[in-house]
Amino acid sequence: MSDAILQAVQQSQIKTDRPVLSIGDTVDVHVRIIEGAKERIQVFTGVIIKRQGSGIEQTITVRRIVANEGVERTFPVHSPRVAKFEIVRHGHTRRSKLYYLRERVGKKRRLRDRKSGLGWLTDQQDKADAARAEQEAKEKAAEQAAAEKAETAE
């Protein structure tokens, strides 16, 4: 119950316009920078190497190379200080945390492009649906057989 209350409190500040940010994606983070009365936007481009927390407390860590030096910045996903996230490309990963990129130098830093967008997800869905349909058909057939048996017994 208390979790529901907390969620309700957070709800008003959760931004619904954020894209799905997944590990390995290269993103442009548009950061609002407030200098006195002026406000300008700075773009930080890099690879998402870590996602942490949930709801309004979710943060992502973005890594980029500046002047041959690795720079990592952590952004709260729902912070008003971030104007928007723009996904540049999806990288293919087999880890949920890409800390191994810190040791990589040069071309090895690059991630393979994710092959088919979200195809794997829909594929999975299709497979699950097919399996369920098959299961249901089997159950139905079994029921029918049982009913017929009962009838013949009568």
Binding site: S2, I5, L6, Q10, I34, G55, I56, H78, S79
Partner: peptide, 21 residues
């Protein structure tokens, strides 16, 4: 005490918040 979370104020600053019913 319900629990803690965070909210953002008008300037986008992160405010740690305790929710009390």
């Amino acid at each position: 005490k319900i629990g803690m979370t965070r909210l953002y104020d008008g300037e986008g600053m992160n405010v740690p918040v305790t929710v009390i019913q």
